[in-house]
């Protein structure tokens, strides 16, 4: 186990496509970090550079104190569980897991001990004699994890590990991963495009977009204090609502004016002051669907109000979701059921 440190990492492909730009990121020893972003954000290039399948154009990468830029993948002691599992079809589960150990001429008793250890941990001890073609999706996933973990890697990476599982298996694996990490305390990086997965599993989340790291932080930080609109909109489901408006100063307070006059909101003082100092012409008011309420009567004291027209209302059992229109903008409200 070790810390992973990326310092000013760049990846430029032939033809000048800049996949990763000036990435600085430290994954602490024993930490579970999610590398999150939409497709094309550079997360896969980053993953491939860490594993060593892709050369680093510029910058330095350290695992522990070792500079690993020039090391071949097998010399880095990094393990990767592939999205598509990439199990060896002719080998039985046992041989799949033991494969990389055998390559290192480790004594057979030691191999047996380690295979049994991860197999027990991942609850696949009963399927060690089977071939990959006889396994279900969840089982394949576990075997691919076991194969990655059995090497006792310094850094453990998972590339979209849940994307080929059905909903129930996914929920189950998420829980098991989290437990597993808590038990082993291994430095782990989860690469995913699904914010739900990242938020559910990781201790810290690194959000990337267009090859640039947008924010790194705990759930609390990225959810409540996003650095920009991209992070704000990407984290959380249903996604955050954005209402565009023009800040106007009024009796010392700041008021947000919709262009077409469909709403006027007096911003809280702290937010108002920041808007004033930023001197922005146009701002977006971001508010999460769970932080909106529907009222029909008089406005309550201290609450901001916007008039909206109902588009649809969905009763979803545990909650309701109201879609409404504020002028041209769609706004979603999550309502508790009455």
């Amino acid at each position: 186990m070790a810390e992973l440190r990326l310092e000013h990492i760049y990846k430029t492909y032939k033809g000048g496509v800049e996949a990763v730009k000036d990435l600085n990121l430290t994954v602490k020893n024993g930490e579970f970090l999610a590398l999150l972003g939409p497709s094309g954000c550079g997360k896969t290039s980053t993953l491939r550079m860490i594993v060593g399948l892709e050369s680093i154009t510029r910058g330095e990468m350290y695992i522990g104190d070792r500079l690993v830029n020039k090391l071949e993948p097998n010399a880095r002691n990094v393990a990767l569980a592939f999205e598509t599992y990439a199990l060896y079809p002719p080998l039985r589960v046992w041989e799949n897991i033991a494969f990389c150990l055998r390559a290192k001429s480790i004594p057979p008793e030691e191999i047996h001990r380690r295979v049994m250890e991860v197999a027990t941990m991942l609850d696949i001890a009963n399927i060690l004699e089977r071939k990959p073609s006889e396994l279900g999706g969840g089982e394949k996933q576990r075997v691919s994890l076991a194969r990655a973990l059995v090497r006792d890697p310094d850094v453990f990476l998972m590339d979209e590990p849940l994307s080929h599982l059905d909903a129930a298996q996914r929920a189950n694996m998420r829980v098991e991963f989290k437990r597993l990490h808590a038990q082993t305390g291994r430095t782990t990086i989860l690469v995913t495009h699904d914010q739900l997965e990242a938020v559910a599993m990781a201790e810290r989340i690194a959000v990337m977009n267009f090859g640039v790291l947008q924010q790194v932080g705990s759930f609390e930080e990225v959810y409540n204090h996003p650095t920009n609109e991209f992070v704000a909109g990407f984290i959380g489901e249903p996604p955050m609502n954005f209402l565009p408006g023009k800040p106007v100063s009024e009796n010392g307070a700041t008021v947000l004016d919709a262009k077409d006059g469909s709403f006027r909101i007096r911003l809280p003082d702290a937010a108002g002051a920041k808007v004033q100092t930023s001197k922005a012409e146009l701002v977006d008011l971001g508010i999460r669907p769970v932080h909106l309420e529907v009222t029909r009567g008089e406005p309550e004291l201290g609450k901001l109000e916007i008039a909206a027209t109902v588009v649809t209302y969905e009763d979803l059992g545990e909650e309701g979701q109201l879609a409404a229109k504020v002028s041209e903008t769609n706004v979603l409200v999550v309502t508790p059921l009455i």
Binding site: R174, K178, L196, A200
Partner: peptide, 14 residues
């Protein structure tokens, strides 16, 4: 607590 997850707009405690 077996595990705690945040899913979408709520937390799920197992």
């Amino acid at each position: 607590v077996y595990v705690f997850e945040r899913l979408g707009n709520k937390g799920v405690l197992t």
